[in-house]
Computed example of a mutant assay.
Amino acid sequence: MADSSKGRAAAAAGRGLVAEQVVARFNQLRQEQRILASKVAELELDLNEHSLVIETLREADPTRKCFRMVGGILVQHTVKEVLPALESNREQITKVTESLSRQLQAKGRELSEFREQHNIRLVGEDDPKHSSKEGAEGGAKGGSAGVLVS
């Protein structure tokens, strides 16, 4: 009998480890999604700044002096030298932002699929499979085991 109880304990520990791995993977996916979202937001701010500076410089005299920060060093140029470089940077930032947005959407789909696959519910989120009439008893009786993430 002692051997069978050890086997059950090991099986329970194995299930717990799997659940811990699922939670860890879910949290990792959420963190990756947050990082992508913050990077997209940061690049959109840079894009807005570039657009504002470009619009301002278009109205300025092309031979006028302007200063540009390059690698932490302030460099003197003329407007006609800086404007094409800023427009090129804006185009590159736009491309990178679009690419990161696609990655963010893909990560969101991956996260949703992972949640559905492992029946992950967040704290405070209702279980859509159970109606409100069943209450706590209906959820405890039937149903599949899921992971609850805070």
Rank of each mutant, 00 (worst) to 15 (best):
A9W: 11
G71V: 09
Q28K: 10
S150L: 12
G72C: 03
Q31Y: 15
A145P: 08
R25W: 06
R30L: 13
L45E: 15
S38C: 08
A10I: 13
L148D: 10
V123R: 14
L47Q: 07
A19S: 08
V23K: 14
L57C: 05
V22S: 00
V40G: 00
D126R: 12
G146R: 00
I93A: 04
Q76T: 14
P84E: 09
S4V: 11
H50I: 13
M1Q: 14
T56K: 14
A140C: 07
R68E: 14
S150C: 06
G71P: 07
R15I: 05
A60Y: 04
A12L: 13
G71S: 08
E81Y: 03
S112Y: 03
H130M: 13
A2I: 01
G135K: 04
Q92D: 08
M1H: 10
V79D: 09
S4D: 12
E32L: 03
I120N: 00
E44K: 03
V53W: 04
E98A: 14
Q92M: 10
E98L: 07
E110V: 00
L43M: 12
S131F: 03
G142K: 09
R34W: 12
S99A: 12
A13V: 05
E81N: 00
G138F: 02
R109P: 03
R109F: 06
A11G: 04
K95A: 15
V123E: 15
P84Q: 08
A12N: 12
K80I: 12
R30S: 11
I35S: 09
R15M: 05
E20D: 11
R15H: 08
G14F: 06
Q31I: 11
